[in-house]
């Protein structure tokens, strides 16, 4: 173990952090939007849509993400001339785009199930209370169902986000130089696997630690009803003032 070498490696790996974070952020956000859309379809009245979403979820959760990335990046190369005719080749020859697409589609499948669980966990009473106030359709969904579901789902979705940060490491298999890609290159150059692993591991742990704190903060911020209020009277006063 050579502390100086670990420090040098750490600095070299830091240049991969923006790439990792960008991959994770874009795919989590895109995946979340798609997941919400899929979850609503999964719970809709349309049988065909329900089946299609169930098949999508089954396919993406049941196969390794590495196969999904390769299927999109290398696999679609088989249809190069068609994609070129459709002016889509510019996108699909770019490993960065392909990885983002694979990561987003993958996390959307897991996210769909998480959000579905959250939507189903909204109690009938709360929905009925909303209906009693005269809300229905989109207004009911936007004001009652979705906010309560979001609150229930934050810790579970948080886990999925951390899994996604880990999953960005697969981008290194299609030549993207994020943290793991740089680490693999350094290991191959120096044969010092332990030191490089320690430095890269520390970076991932740090990212995930910060993320966990952020998720816990969001969870706390969204559930004031579970906190024991120290000044109940003022809270009620503040509520009355805002409504």
């Amino acid at each position: 173990m050579n502390l100086h070498f670990i420090w040098e490696t750490f600095l070299a790996l830091l240049t991969g952090v923006p790439v990792t974070l960008k991959l994770a952020t874009v795919s989590v956000v895109a995946g979340m939007i798609l997941a919400l859309f899929l979850a609503v379809l999964r719970l809709s009245r349309f049988r065909l849509a329900r089946w299609a979403v169930a098949a999508y979820v089954f396919a993406f959760r049941g196969s390794p993400m590495l196969v999904q990335i390769f299927l999109i990046y290398y696999g679609l190369g088989q249809f190069r001339s068609t994609l070129q005719a459709l002016h889509l080749w510019y996108w699909f020859r770019d490993p960065y785009f392909c990885v983002l697409l694979a990561l987003s589609l993958n996390t959307a499948a897991y996210g769909c199930e998480i959000i579905r669980g959250g939507l189903q966990s909204v109690s009938a009473q709360q929905v009925e209370a909303g209906r009693a106030c005269g809300m229905s359709g989109l207004l009911l969904f936007r004001r009652i169902t979705l906010p309560i579901a979001v609150r229930n789902v934050v810790p579970i979705y948080g886990n999925e986000i951390i899994l996604m940060v880990k999953a960005t490491s697969l981008a290194s298999t299609v030549t993207i130089m994020e943290i793991t890609g740089i680490a693999a290159k350094l290991i191959a150059e120096t044969y010092r696997a332990f030191e490089v692993f320690a430095a890269a591991g520390a970076i991932y742990l740090l990212i995930n630690f910060v993320l966990m704190r952020l998720i816990a903060f969001v969870e706390r911020a969204l559930s004031p009803h579970l906190r024991r209020s120290t000044r109940p009277v003022e809270t009620i006063g503040a509520l009355a003032a805002t409504h």
Binding site: S169, L170, S172, A183, Y191, A193, F194, G201, Y204
Partner: peptide
């Protein structure tokens, strides 16, 4: 449990493959 659930599996495989060889 914290470390191994927070680090990408791919990195662990590299560690064992190249580290073991070293």
């Amino acid at each position: 449990t914290t470390i191994l659930r927070g680090i990408p599996d791919l990195l662990v495989i590299y560690l064992f493959y190249f580290g073991g060889s070293a």
